[in-house]
Simulated scan of single mutants.
Amino acid sequence: MEKIKKIGVMTSGGDAPGMNAAIRAVVRTCAYHNIDCVGIYRGYEGMMQGDFIDLNARSVKGIINKGGTFLKSARSIEFRTKEGRQKAYNALRAANIDALVTIGGDGTFTGAMIFNQEFDFPVIGIPGTIDNDIFGTSHTLGYDTALNTVVEVIDKIRDTASSHNRLFFVEVMGRDVGHIALNVGVGAGAEEILIPEEDLGLDRLLESLVRSKESGKSSSIVVVAEGDKIGKSVFELKDYVEEHMPEYDVRVSVLGHMQRGGSPSCFDRVLASRMGVKAVESLLDGKSNYMVGLLCDKIALTPLDRAIKGQSKINKELIRVSDIMTT
């Protein structure tokens, strides 16, 4: 690997709180090591078009507390083609960029891994996605912030539920994994938690709600991950419960993209800073095709192919805790 003199940094895929903090860490670590840094607007789409901006330590002041990503994010169909990736490589070389830090999820990492294989271009990934669905890290950037955002919202929904004797189905993000639903369900004291990893079934859901009603509960909160397999949608669950428990006034709240927004938590700001430093220094140490992650509270490297192909595991102990807490 040639000596790295200039590093590009980009965000891709869905935005997540902490991405700006990670960009800041990458830029300032480059400055610390006297390496030039270039920001790439709009992910791979901007890379192909050479939409670059020179960054220095002062360029990233005042962004550590900002949600989203000031470099913007986009999904690129063209980059999935060999011609598109060649176009991106040509743009990077024309700008004398020697290595790349990509911040995003598995789609971002897949693109980075293929790009590395085709052009032997040094890449390091930083996991940024609120779903926490990346193998090789206990926490992805934005996950902790999303948990705090959702718990705060559910606390407010409970005020309304208890005031009107209502049952609320609250749908949270989590298409493939239930990390958000499980953690906020326990943290917000939900009466039931529905996640893709545990198929509760409609009958068991009904039995649980009946038990809650018989125990004296006049209102209930059910947290549902969007990828839960019980019903075709959270609205189908609502209809089913209304049909079998007409005494309940059932409402649905789909939290949607509000979960991605907001100022990152202290945890995410610190994590982003640690990951950004590790990403740059790993490239300078000659490492490539890795993802930076948090394992046992230590920053570690996982090969990109393992990060992409591996599956993040749901916390079985927390599932048992939730079963006990909903008794």
Rank of each mutant, 00 (worst) to 15 (best):
E2I: 11
K5N: 15
V9Y: 05
T11A: 12
G18W: 03
I23H: 05
I23P: 02
V27W: 06
V27Q: 06
R28K: 12
H33G: 14
D36R: 15
I40N: 01
G43K: 01
G43S: 06
G46R: 05
I53C: 15
L55W: 04
A57T: 14
A57M: 14
K61C: 13
G62D: 09
G67P: 02
G67S: 01
G67T: 00
G67A: 01
L71T: 02
A74Y: 10
R75N: 03
R75L: 05
R85N: 03
A88N: 00
N90H: 11
A91P: 02
L92F: 08
A94M: 13
V101H: 02
G104C: 03
G107C: 07
T108L: 13
A112S: 09
I114M: 13
I114Y: 12
F119M: 08
P122T: 02
P122M: 02
V123C: 11
G125L: 04
I130M: 00
N132Y: 03
N132R: 03
N132I: 03
T137C: 01
H139T: 07
T140I: 02
G142A: 05
Y143C: 04
T145F: 04
A146N: 00
E152C: 09
E152I: 09
D155F: 07
R158A: 13
R158I: 08
A161N: 04
F168D: 01
F168G: 03
G178H: 01
I180V: 12
A181D: 08
V184S: 10
V184P: 02
A188C: 11
I195V: 08
P196A: 09
D199R: 15
G201Q: 08
L202P: 14
L202C: 14
D203C: 13
R204W: 13
L205I: 12
L205F: 05
L205H: 07
L206M: 15
V210P: 09
S212R: 12
S212K: 14
K213C: 10
S215Y: 08
K217M: 08
S218A: 10
V224F: 06
E226I: 10
D228T: 14
K229D: 11
K229F: 10
K232W: 10
V234W: 03
V234T: 12
L237Q: 09
D239V: 02
E242G: 02
E242C: 09
E247N: 10
Y248I: 05
V250M: 07
V250F: 07
R251C: 12
R251A: 12
R251T: 06
V252K: 11
S253V: 15
S253F: 11
V254S: 09
R260D: 00
G261V: 06
P264V: 01
S265R: 00
V270N: 11
V277G: 03
A279R: 05
S282P: 00
D285H: 07
G286N: 01
K287W: 01
K287H: 09
S288E: 13
M291G: 06
M291D: 04
L294H: 03
D297V: 03
A300T: 12
T302Q: 02
P303M: 05
D305S: 13
A307W: 08
S312C: 10
K313C: 10
I314L: 15
E317Q: 11
E317H: 13
I319N: 06
R320Y: 14
V321R: 13
M325I: 09
T326S: 15
T326I: 10
T327A: 11
